[in-house]
Structure formats: C-alpha cells, structure tokens
Amino acid sequence: MAIVADHLGLSWTELARELNFSVDEINQIRVENPNSLISQSFMLLKKWVTRDGKNATTDALTSVLTKINRIDIVTLLE
C-alpha cells in the first residue's frame, strides 16, 4: 500500500471515486489529513481495505489503477 500511496499524488481522489467512495468520504479524508497527499492516499487505501476486506486485493487495485491510467503504479506492483 505504501508504494501506491507514495506515487498516487493528486490521482488519489480519482482512485477514490473509482473505488466507489462518496464525495463526503473523500472530503473527510482530506479534512483528516490536510497537509499530505501521501497521507490522504494511504488513508484512502486503508479505508478501502477495511471496507472491502478480502475483496481488497492487489488484482482489484491493479484493475482500478489501470482504469484511471496509472500504469506507472501498476508496473511498480508487478
């Protein structure tokens, strides 16, 4: 997760939308982690794993990252 969080940057909100997080949930992550995109990205991934449990797999994440054109991160995960 740390590799993904380190590289997402501003794309974390796009990833959040693709992972079916609501606008309110995205804003809450922003408010709770106001000074760091990496912290926002990491919190998103943590919430995703908590919410989706065993369905929050590397394959699922890779699929969504591909959908938002972040092949650079997919390559890092391989």
Rank of each mutant, 00 (worst) to 15 (best):
M1G: 05
M1H: 05
M1R: 08
M1Y: 15
M1W: 14
M1L: 10
A2G: 15
I3T: 10
I3Q: 07
I3M: 11
V4N: 04
V4K: 02
V4T: 08
A5Q: 04
A5S: 10
A5T: 03
A5D: 03
D6R: 10
D6V: 07
D6S: 08
H7W: 02
H7L: 07
H7E: 14
H7C: 04
L8Y: 04
L8A: 00
L8I: 09
L8S: 01
G9L: 00
G9W: 02
G9S: 05
G9H: 04
G9P: 01
L10S: 15
L10A: 12
L10C: 13
S11F: 04
S11C: 07
W12M: 02
W12I: 03
W12C: 00
W12G: 00
T13H: 09
T13N: 07
T13V: 12
T13C: 05
T13I: 13
T13P: 15
T13F: 13
T13Y: 12
E14L: 07
L15F: 10
L15D: 00
L15P: 03
A16R: 01
A16V: 05
A16W: 02
A16F: 04
A16T: 02
R17Y: 12
R17F: 11
R17E: 12
R17V: 10
E18W: 02
E18L: 04
E18K: 05
L19A: 05
N20C: 07
N20S: 11
N20F: 09
N20T: 06
N20Y: 07
F21L: 03
F21T: 01
F21D: 00
F21W: 00
F21C: 00
V23Q: 15
V23M: 11
V23Y: 05
V23P: 13
V23K: 10
D24K: 09
D24E: 14
D24G: 08
D24L: 08
D24V: 07
E25M: 03
E25S: 03
E25L: 02
I26K: 00
I26S: 02
I26T: 03
I26W: 01
N27I: 13
N27S: 10
N27W: 07
N27H: 12
Q28L: 08
Q28F: 06
Q28K: 10
Q28E: 14
I29P: 02
I29Q: 05
I29M: 05
I29C: 03
I29V: 07
R30P: 08
R30A: 13
R30Q: 09
R30M: 15
R30E: 11
V31H: 15
V31M: 09
V31F: 11
V31Y: 14
V31I: 13
V31R: 14
V31P: 01
V31A: 12
E32Q: 11
E32I: 04
E32N: 12
E32Y: 08
N33R: 10
N33L: 03
N33H: 13
N33D: 06
P34D: 08
P34R: 08
P34S: 10
N35G: 12
N35W: 05
N35R: 10
N35E: 11
N35I: 07
N35Q: 11
N35Y: 07
S36V: 00
S36A: 04
S36M: 03
S36P: 01
L37C: 10
L37D: 08
I38A: 13
I38C: 12
I38Q: 10
S39T: 13
S39I: 05
S39C: 13
Q40L: 02
Q40P: 04
Q40G: 03
Q40Y: 04
Q40M: 10
S41V: 02
S41N: 03
S41I: 03
S41R: 03
S41Y: 04
S41P: 00
F42V: 14
F42S: 15
F42P: 02
F42M: 15
F42W: 14
M43V: 12
M43R: 10
M43Q: 13
M43I: 06
M43T: 14
M43F: 08
M43C: 15
L44M: 12
L44T: 05
L44F: 11
L44R: 02
L44V: 09
L45P: 01
L45S: 01
L45Y: 00
L45N: 02
L45Q: 02
L45A: 02
K46D: 14
K46T: 12
K46H: 09
K46I: 05
K47N: 13
K47Q: 09
K47R: 12
W48L: 03
V49N: 14
T50M: 14
T50F: 08
T50G: 14
T50K: 15
R51V: 02
R51H: 02
R51W: 05
D52Y: 03
D52P: 03
D52C: 05
G53C: 05
G53H: 07
G53I: 01
G53W: 02
G53F: 03
K54C: 11
K54R: 12
K54V: 14
K54M: 11
K54W: 09
N55A: 14
N55Q: 14
N55V: 11
A56H: 07
A56Q: 07
A56P: 07
T57V: 10
T57P: 01
T58P: 09
T58Y: 14
T58W: 10
T58H: 13
D59Y: 08
D59F: 05
D59W: 09
D59A: 13
D59E: 11
D59R: 12
A60C: 11
L61V: 01
L61G: 00
L61F: 02
T62G: 09
T62V: 12
T62C: 08
S63E: 11
S63N: 11
V64Q: 15
V64S: 12
L65D: 15
L65E: 02
L65Y: 03
T66V: 14
T66F: 12
T66G: 10
T66R: 12
T66W: 09
T66S: 09
K67L: 04
K67Q: 12
K67C: 06
K67T: 08
N69S: 08
N69R: 08
R70M: 03
R70C: 02
I71G: 15
I71V: 14
D72R: 02
D72L: 03
D72N: 05
D72V: 04
D72S: 02
D72E: 05
I73Q: 00
I73L: 10
I73A: 04
I73N: 05
I73D: 04
V74A: 08
V74P: 02
T75W: 09
T75G: 13
T75N: 15
L76F: 08
L77Q: 02
L77D: 02
L77P: 03
L77G: 04
